[in-house]
Computed example of a mutant assay.
Amino acid sequence: MATKKPYAAETSVPVTKSRDDIEKLLVENGSEDIAFGNIRGFIVVAFSAHERQVRFTVPMPDVESPEITRTPSGAIRTSKAELTRVYDQAVRQRWRALFITIKSKFVSIDSHVASWEQEFGHAIVLPDGRTVMEATLPAIERAYATGTVPPLLGITS
Rank of each mutant, 00 (worst) to 15 (best):
E51M: 10
R52K: 15
Q53E: 15
R55H: 01
F56N: 02
T57F: 01
T57K: 15
T57C: 09
V58S: 10
V58I: 12
P59G: 00
M60R: 13
P61E: 03
P61F: 02
P61V: 08
D62P: 06
D62K: 04
V63E: 13
V63Q: 12
S65L: 00
S65H: 07
P66K: 14
T71A: 09
P72R: 01
S73V: 09
S73I: 02
G74T: 10
G74R: 02
G74N: 08
G74S: 08
A75F: 14
A75S: 13
A75K: 13
I76H: 02
R77G: 02
R77Q: 08
R77W: 03
T78C: 00
T78P: 08
T78F: 04
S79Y: 07
K80D: 11
K80G: 03
E82G: 01
E82T: 12
T84F: 07
T84C: 01
V86L: 05
Y87K: 05
Y87V: 03
D88I: 02
D88S: 14
Q89K: 12
Q89M: 05
A90P: 04
A90C: 09
A90M: 07
V91I: 10
V91Q: 07
R92G: 06
R92Y: 00
R92M: 10
Q93R: 13
R94M: 06
W95E: 03
W95L: 01
R96D: 12
A97I: 02
A97L: 01
A97W: 00
F99N: 02
F99V: 02
I100M: 10
T101Q: 12
T101W: 11
K103G: 05
K103L: 10
K103W: 11
K103A: 12
K103T: 01
S104C: 09
S104A: 14
K105E: 04
F106N: 04
F106S: 02
S108R: 10
I109D: 13
I109R: 06
D110W: 06
D110L: 06
D110M: 05
S111K: 08
H112Q: 11
V113E: 15
A114C: 04
E117L: 02
Q118R: 12
E119T: 03
F120R: 03
F120L: 05
G121D: 01
I124A: 09
I124M: 13
V125E: 09
V125M: 06
V125Q: 08
L126Y: 03
P127F: 01
D128P: 06
R130F: 06
R130D: 13
T131L: 08
V132A: 11
V132Y: 10
E134C: 03
A135I: 00
T136C: 10
T136M: 15
L137V: 09
L137W: 05
A139E: 12
A139Q: 12
A139L: 14
A139S: 11
I140N: 07
I140D: 06
E141A: 13
